[in-house]
Design a protein around this nucleic acid. Structure first.
Lengths: 244, 244
DNA sequence: TCGTTTTAGAATGTATTCAAAATAGTCGAC
DNA sequence: GTCGACTATTTTGAATACATTCTAAAACGA
């Protein structure tokens, strides 16, 4: 069915630079998953991906384990062998994911709330600018979904950058990107609720300016919780993807 | 310096069972790190570990990446190559770690607080039993530290088991074990404050029985926060390990 | 025709080999 | 004597080769 010989004959193996294959594989495969090119629930074949990415199984294998640890891939393990599948997208998982991120960012939120006033003002200026942009976009029916997502993401990443320590930053970088899968699948429907998120962001900014850790933490938790609820409605309507 | 030939000559390579090397490597190396056999800050050499564990570099390599993702190993990366070092133990890191776990367990705490009464009672009976045992141990000067740690751990893991979803459970399993490094290093000094933790656990149990999510979440957060503070004092006194 | 057993193929796990890059050490020039 | 460049060794990254196990299909028997 699949011509085995094509590999040695057709692909000269471009050899990117050396030392970049693992990272490349990780990014590429994650991209495939996020964009739905690898459907939720799909079985993952190392050899197939290796051929697709034009590299050997070794870095692909590493990337798969990495993606597994970050939640993009699940392990269906028998006694010794393990089959990997693309993690399904479910309402429960989305809810859990959003709650977790809300709590984590809440911690960073406490961090920024106790920064010196000067830094807080500087940060809030940037946050405000991002949120203003979101406000504008929210009134534009034809706004590109990608820009909205990146904008919202920047808002939250700024808070991490200013308020989180090394460990939190690492953890956040591992978990937060997973929201993109849900976002992309249900993007069009989420947009119309965008103004709600803008208001929640405003509350966070005010909390930071007031230097109130509890208010900031709560504000961020609420933002993600409400987001989870909005997303949940959409998933219920459209049905879950990845239970196939 | 290091005899290269010894590998093929001396080690018959026991070959555990096949398909178990990666997991074995992960566990063994983590054990080495947790028990301080690999000191914080030490450079990690794949070949050395492979020889030590009597396997090839391949599973060792996988295990190292895994441990890196879980925070036991850090990457000291130049442009392209990456040197791995055992993660140092610092006051700041401990604080961050404990706060994070507190927030995560808090979520699970909300979960158990809304379980049906029957399950809550069943759970609380088990929790109470564990905490009673801790209470007894806390009055025993010569109590084995290992038992205390395992007992405390069981308490928290029970809450996760009953109140957390799949994603939370995975995340908790990845993060919580890292507390053991701090615990082991400063165990003797922490024990004398154990009665405080027992009281905090009691508050959690009462919150669960009352079916009050906020109370349970706060209780767990406080337990970890106070633990972080207690640990911080000890670290300050003894000095940080791993800045060598 | 259905069930069981055996065998062939496919996919994962591990070892080994090969390549590239960084670091350390040495030699030479100023 | 010191600084810099070049070389050699060490170590990581990737590819390929090999072993094992799981799956599934086919054949044989009831």
């Amino acid at each position: 069915m699949k011509k085995k010989l094509s590999l040695s004959a057709a692909s000269p193996r471009a050899k990117a630079e050396h030392g970049t294959s693992l990272l490349t594989a990780f990014r590429e495969i994650r991209e495939l998953i996020v964009h739905g090119r690898l459907s939720p629930g799909t079985w993952i074949l190392e050899a197939e991906l290796a051929e697709r990415l034009n590299m050997s199984r070794t870095p692909v294998r590493g990337a798969i384990h990495w993606l597994q640890r970050e939640g993009y891939i699940l392990e269906h393990r028998n006694v010794k062998k393990s089959r990997m599948i693309v993690a399904p997208l479910t309402k429960e998982d989305a809810n859990e994911l959003y709650i977790i991120i809300g709590r984590l960012e809440g911690i960073a939120g406490r961090g920024v709330a106790v920064l010196p006033v000067a830094e807080r003002k500087e940060l809030c200026a940037q946050l405000q600018e991002l949120n203003d942009r979101l406000q504008v976009i929210s009134k534009d029916r034809d706004a590109p979904p990608g820009e909205i997502f990146e904008n919202d993401r920047s808002f939250h990443r700024l808070i991490i950058k200013y308020g989180a320590g090394a460990r939190m930053t690492t953890l956040h970088k591992a978990i937060e990107p997973q929201t993109e899968r849900y976002w992309r699948l249900y993007a069009s429907s989420i947009i119309k609720d965008l103004y709600l998120s803008v208001a929640e962001h405003d509350e966070v900014i005010r909390g930071i300016l007031a230097g109130d850790p509890d208010r900031v933490e709560t504000g961020l938790q609420v933002n993600w919780l409400k987001g989870s609820e909005r997303l949940g409605h959409v998933i219920e309507i459209f049905g879950e993807r990845g239970s196939w």
